[in-house]
Simulated assay, not measured.
Amino acid sequence: MSFEKTLTDKGITLPDAPAPAANYVPFARSGNLIFVSGQISADENGLIQGKLGETMDVEAGAAAARRCGLALIAQLRAATGSLDNVRRVVKLTGFVNSTPDFTDQPKVINGCSDLMVEVFGDAGRHARAAVSAAALPLGVAVEIEAIFEVE
């Protein structure tokens, strides 16, 4: 199965792989694993900022998480040259900028998880953590990091 073709068939356009904002690399490879640094919520208009439970609802948070997922996939393509070298999505760790009483972090991170399954099918099913954060860099709503297995 061609994951590159899946992107085209589904009309999914990846952003350019974002450059790191500090002293780290966007991804690191160890053996057959690619570790992608946390990708923050942003779209063609800039950063997606907000706090779940205060200025954003779950639907908007899930959309922000999907944007993180697109950036993760863009970094993965930059790391491998082609998504067709991907064996599986191993794990996502999602951070949600949310109020202390907000408890729907998993529903927010589903925006990214659903994208992984949409693009990679069964190989997109993964282990995951979805946690609250009192604040995230630049006031973004969501940040997600990932581990992928490649050939």
Rank of each mutant, 00 (worst) to 15 (best):
V25R: 11
G69L: 15
T13R: 12
P20E: 08
L115G: 07
M1V: 15
A64R: 03
A71Q: 15
S2T: 09
S82R: 11
I73P: 01
D9N: 09
S132F: 03
V36C: 12
P18V: 06
T93E: 12
S30V: 08
K10Q: 06
I48V: 12
G81E: 09
A21G: 10
G111L: 13
P18G: 06
V90Q: 02
F102H: 06
S82T: 15
S30E: 13
K51S: 14
L14Q: 01
R125P: 00
A28I: 11
A141V: 01
R88H: 03
C112M: 11
A28C: 04
V131N: 11
T55S: 14
S2D: 07
L70R: 05
R67S: 13
P100R: 12
E44R: 15
G94V: 09
A74V: 02
N85Y: 09
Y24V: 10
A133K: 10
N23I: 07
V25A: 13
P20A: 08
R88Y: 02
G11C: 04
P15N: 05
I12W: 01
L52W: 07
A17Q: 05
F95E: 10
T13P: 06
I12Q: 00
R128A: 13
S98T: 11
G81Q: 07
E149P: 00
S132E: 10
F102D: 02
G111W: 07
A79N: 05
T55I: 11
L136Y: 03
G46A: 12
L70M: 14
R128Q: 15
A64Y: 04
G11V: 05
Q49E: 13
I73L: 11
F35E: 09
E4I: 07
N23Q: 10
L52D: 05
S2M: 05
V89R: 00
G139I: 09
P26Q: 14
R87L: 15
D9F: 01
V96S: 00
S2H: 08
G81N: 01
I73A: 07
